[in-house]
Amino acid sequence: MSDLAQKRGFALPGVKGNAIVMALYLLFLLLPIYWLLNMSLKTNTEILNSFTLWPRDLTFDNYVTILTDASWYSGYLNSMAYVVMNMVISLAVALPAAYAFSRYSFMGDKHLFFWLLTNRMAPPAVFALPFFQLYSSVGLFDTHIAVALAHALFNVPLAVWILEGFMRGVPKEIDETAYIDGYSFPRFFIRIFTPLVASGIGVTAFFLFMFSWVELLLSRTLTSVNAKPIAATMTRTVGAAGIDWGVLAAAGVLTIVPGALVIYFVRNYIAKGFALGRV
């Protein structure tokens, strides 16, 4: 089978054409990122005064600035804090719900499922102001938990969808056998079922991380100082004291790093996650 699959190839003219198309596409993807990396390793003088394709005067000063200045690195810590909170909250509530959707039919299940999806469709711009007022009135403005809860708006539905897709793949007989063996539901769920969908949970966690990490509008609206995310730190620095291109580029590169690190582990599941577990 593998022999045939390799010979077949997808492209029209054969293997070589494939490689050229992929090389061009990857070049298109990586060039802007390379440019950011390139700039982050230059001094501002070099950036502004000479146009160079690679750093002639290699410097790590821009990174040192970020990693030693609390107003910069606290942004990363804040982002990490609310992303992790959001992951924990979303997974905790989505696991039982996804199980219910994958195993049982109950009154209103289809409507409920679509209603959850509608929250994934809600434009953050619509919710920015009401969120601000809601969290201010309950005294949560500028806290990590406020951002985590706000991101739950789109992350919880996503988690339910992806987990449901993975749980559907676990044969129902396993549940039935466990109940016959005398397992109670909580014990069965934690001891037997959760390990079976471990890869699904990992993939879900990755997507929760991703969508909470990349979002800016809500996290910026809901924070001012104590929980300000790195993304907002970047925009404000641009506005305030001219533009320090080198530091800005270095901050940008550092926001790419966490995603780039975890992506390797989920590479074979990314499509399944984006397809909400439906491939």
Binding site: L26, L29, I33, L36, V214, L216, A231, I256, G259
Partner: peptide, 22 residues
Amino acid sequence: LVLMSLPLLIPWNVVGTIWQIF
């Protein structure tokens, strides 16, 4: 797969910044 996924994981304002600079 890994390289193609890279742009998907960049915070949206950094995507903006990248193209603003580029």
